[in-house]
Design a protein around this nucleic acid. Structure first.
Lengths: 202, 202, 202, 202
DNA sequence: CATGAATGAGGGTTCATTCAT
DNA sequence: AATGAATGAACCCTCATTCAT
């Protein structure tokens, strides 16, 4: 596992790469020369900081995931009340799905990414890291829900967290394929998700 | 959209490709020569039936998805009672996630597949097709649930189907990352999913 | 060790490569694309027959050496009389050194070639092969010399062969650096070599 | 032709490079960064003293050759008696061939080195320089041999020197490929060489 | 002077696709 | 119809050289 402290050049590579993804470039078609150009550095320079294209991509995704999730965690934690936290998460999910590139999307296809690139699925991999962050978020939400009386404390921890995860992924599914649900708009889908959650937890 | 009637050679290609995936070969690293060998045909022959490697892969996945989902639909439909149908679906989900390759996995990363291969995301794409099948399954389950009194009929169709989809994906998530939930076994996770569903629908 | 039977394409590569060397191209600067062009085949085709550029070059040199040395052996063996054999060998040496490329030159720098290319210095390497051929030639010459009474049979086999080898290499040295010996012409150098040999062997 | 006076940095480069060669590093694979590290200087510094990697290597070899040959000349000259001089030369030859790197080896493959590196084969090249030194050594030996009555003075200068050169190269050949002469040891080979020389010269 | 971070031209190799048989 | 030998465009990576500090 590499240090969390990255040099300017490394961060330039990360930002360049994520920038390309946000422009809609497919992860599977990115060329080293494109990354270099997007990062405003020479092609060879990438190899001064990363041992391969694979590594550069992997670390970029990890870096971006960490940044993004750190932000999400703090946003949710700084949001008051159970209901607001849930809606905040649904909002973030919506944005993520709608954008050309997001960590959420990466995580949803992370198995494929690691199957494409022979990344050492070491201690710290994308999904583990993501699940870790989600754990913190769930924790924060469960605590709020219990304090505010929305959650029946007799449920197991897994049950409670699982319920939240469920409605999130279900909502993500909706956003991903809105066109299949012509009679449902986003706000309604959020309401449905929230209602379902309340029913599961009480 | 191509005919649903495929020639022997085309089906050989489909089976060969899916066979490779089931052996754990990464979709992103498959070579035409490997497909040809797995299908027991010459490399050039593939181009007599498909316009490109991309198309061959895309159609193979679609073919396999259709076969598999047709089977799943009929299995669920032929299962009696609401609860049994749900458990059947959870069982199928479990198997799918655990196997090296399954249509479910393909669908979960379908955005990536289509981003890797410049597939004309035409009328009939993998996800649309999948959602279509899922719709049928949901329909069957909802009907059973209503007939058996598990489902409060006042909910919208979206609400009802969404609830089922939620717990399925939530359960899929669990199976994918069992190692993160050390105190939960598969049977418990199924129970939790079922309980959550009942609560959402009543 | 590969079979001695080569396909047309392999021989085309061999001839193409040796052709480049004979044009004065340095072995160390040859590009795969040049070899392909010289062999009148596509660049990729080389990799259908050889696992790497290194291997292609190594096998080409070996192939050429075998061909050339086989010819030399038969030329010397078919020459009658001790003196004629020696002069034949000196003539061949002269031609070899004067040409832009010859197996003799390769052998003289074979250690470098193998140090440049990480060739598995397996059973059959250039120098061993060369020494083997030389052994046969020496044998043929020693037999003639003994039959004709030029060679005192009491010398060891090593002594006799070594004497021949000596004057050959000495003569090769002369040809390589003629410009350093302004008062000696090739014919004189051959006479000197022969005289020295006679003195050593009687 | 550059001055014979080199700066400390230049000599550091020379020694660093030769050091690498003596460690068994192939001349054809040496990188500028390695030379710099071996010389304990910065990579850029090399270009303050040499116009290219090629030049640095060429001058290093030349420098080393001069040092080594100067030493060899003086060793041979300071050895008394014809026979001792010859044996001294054979000893030196043996050491040279056995070591990972020596000027002798360089000279034996000098054509390749200059073909690899586009060295201006100007006035002062490796082989010319070497032949020059050898000339001095031959001179010294011939003089001793004549004084001691081993050499028939009626032979031409070329004949005499050529004889010495012959047995040296012949012996070098033996040492290079000892494994091919299982029934001959080094001391015997030296004796053979000396005997052959005596016979040629008397 | 000395450095080493940065560069990018260049080359070995892969593999989707073609086409003569 | 079927093949697989042949192709060459494309791309990753190396490393000699430069130049700002």
């Amino acid at each position: 596992m590499r240090s969390n402290q990255y040099s300017d050049k490394e961060i330039a590579v990360f930002n360049g790469l994520v920038g390309l993804l946000k422009q809609g470039k497919s992860l599977y078609k990115i060329k080293v020369s494109e990354i270099a150009k997007a990062a405003n550095i020479g092609k060879g320079t990438i190899y001064d900081y990363f041992s391969s294209k694979e590594e550069a991509i992997y670390l970029a995704l990890l870096y971006y995931l960490n940044n993004e999730m750190t932000r999400v965690v703090s946003e949710v934690e700084s949001t008051s009340s159970f209901k607001n936290k849930i809606y905040k998460l649904l909002d973030i999910t919506e944005e993520n799905i709608e954008s050309k590139y997001s960590s959420l999307k990466t995580v949803l296809s992370a198995k494929d990414i690691s199957s494409m690139y022979d990344l050492i699925e070491g201690n710290e991999n994308l999904i583990d890291s993501f699940i870790n962050y989600m754990g913190k978020i769930m924790e924060s939400i469960v605590t709020a829900g219990e304090n505010e009386g929305y959650i029946n404390k007799s449920y197991s921890s897994y049950y409670k967290k699982s319920a939240i995860r469920c409605i999130l992924i279900g909502f993500a599914q909706f956003v991903s394929h809105k066109e299949c649900y012509k009679d449902v708009n986003v706000d309604l889908a959020k309401e449905v998700a929230y209602t379902q959650l309340i029913k599961m937890l009480r």
